[in-house]
Structure formats: C-alpha cells, structure tokens
Amino acid sequence: MNIKKEVSIKKISNDAENLFRGGFFCSEALLSSIRSNFELDIPEEIIGMASGFPIGIGRSKCLCGAVAGGVMALGLFFGRTKQGDCKVEKTLELSKELHDWFKEANGKNALCCRILTKEFDMASGAHKEQCIRYTGMVAGKVAEIIVRELNLVNTDSLLTV
C-alpha cells in the first residue's frame, strides 16, 4: 500500500472533527481523515465499512465508535490478510495501546458509549461536541501510532517557533 510519508497529526485530528461536524459519524470521520491524509490508495467504500459502529455499534451504546474506527484504521496499516500471518500480534498490540490510552485520556475510565455519554440527553444531541472531541483525539492517536511505527514524519514537529 502506498502512503504519504509526511503528515500533520494535528490536521488529521482536526479533519476528523470537521468531518463529524459535517455529517459523518465518529468511525466514518476517523477513517475518512486517515484515508485522505495518508493518501491511501484504497476505495472510499472503506469508510462505509465503518458505518455500523457509531453510537456504540449500531446505537447499542457499547464500544465507542471512534475507538472502533481507530482499530479499523490500525488494521489497514498493520493487519493481516492471510491466515497464519504473525502480523496479527502487532495489530493486537497496537489496538490494545489505543484502547488503554483512550480509556485513560477520556477522563471517564471507559470505552462504553453508554458510560461516556450518560450525563447527556442523547435525543437533544447534547453529546455531539464531546463525541467530536473524542473522534479528533482518537484520530490523532491513531496517526501518532502509524507515524511512530512506520517511521514517517509528523510535519507538526517541523514547525519552528
């Protein structure tokens, strides 16, 4: 897979947030941002694969859709396509890293949408800004992992003061 060698993690995070604001849900926005910023030569249908994950997998309020989309994105880069391929171990390790990081970073020690949004009236959309923020956070962390693991360049670190 051809990928862009230099990316801005901040831009990936901001793009994911803006895509959510523009009409995508969390998992879709995350995958779309990763796909476009890394200039992945994969079809847009990959975004459609994420359409069932929002609001805790099909509105069941289980696993946070941003995290589900993040794990899908990690699978794009590090996942296996053949049985017996030991690449799966690296994918599992990186997915756990994302899981553990988000559980701590969100300040609620949870990955369950039901817990993350319990203080909000979901029908009114009061949760949306928090979910947009979480989507940006997760997109940024996924990009950070990809950049680190593939020895790519984060152009944010090239900016001088």
Rank of each mutant, 00 (worst) to 15 (best):
I57S: 04
I47N: 12
R35N: 02
S36D: 08
K128I: 13
N18L: 13
L31R: 03
K61C: 00
P54V: 01
K5G: 01
S95H: 02
N18I: 06
F78Y: 06
S51M: 15
R133F: 11
K82S: 07
L92P: 05
L31Y: 05
K11N: 12
G48K: 15
K4Y: 05
N106G: 00
I55M: 07
F25R: 14
T160N: 14
G48R: 13
L159T: 11
N151F: 09
A66H: 05
R133Q: 14
S95F: 03
G107R: 10
A29L: 05
I46M: 14
D85N: 05
E89F: 09
I115G: 02
A139E: 12
R148N: 09
V142R: 01
G107Q: 07
M122C: 08
L76N: 08
L94H: 03
L152T: 06
F77G: 01
L111H: 11
P43Q: 09
L19A: 14
S124V: 09
F120C: 12
E89G: 03
R21L: 15
H99N: 15
H127Q: 12
D15M: 09
V142H: 04
F38D: 09
Q130P: 03
I55T: 05
K82G: 01
G69P: 00
H99P: 13
I3P: 11
P54G: 03
L19V: 11
G22R: 08
V7T: 00
G136D: 04
G48N: 14
V147E: 13
F78S: 05
I12R: 06
G52L: 04
S157P: 05
S13N: 04
L152D: 09
T135E: 10
A110Q: 06
N2V: 13
D100Q: 08
G52C: 04
E149L: 01
R59C: 11
M137P: 12
E144C: 09
G69E: 05
G58I: 01
V138G: 03
N106M: 00
S33G: 03
S157C: 04
G58E: 06
G75W: 06
F102T: 02
D100A: 04
G107F: 06
E104R: 08
A139I: 08
N14R: 03
L98F: 06
A50M: 07
N18S: 12
K141V: 00
G84Q: 06
S124I: 09
M1L: 11
K118E: 15
T160Q: 14
L150G: 10
I3F: 15
I3H: 15
S32Q: 15
I42L: 10
R80T: 10
I46S: 13
S60I: 06
L30S: 02
F20Q: 13
V138P: 01
G70R: 09
G79T: 03
E97H: 02
I47V: 14
G48Q: 14
E129L: 01
E17V: 00
V142S: 02
K103I: 11
K4C: 10
H127P: 05
L158Q: 13
C112I: 10
G65N: 03
S124G: 06
M1H: 11
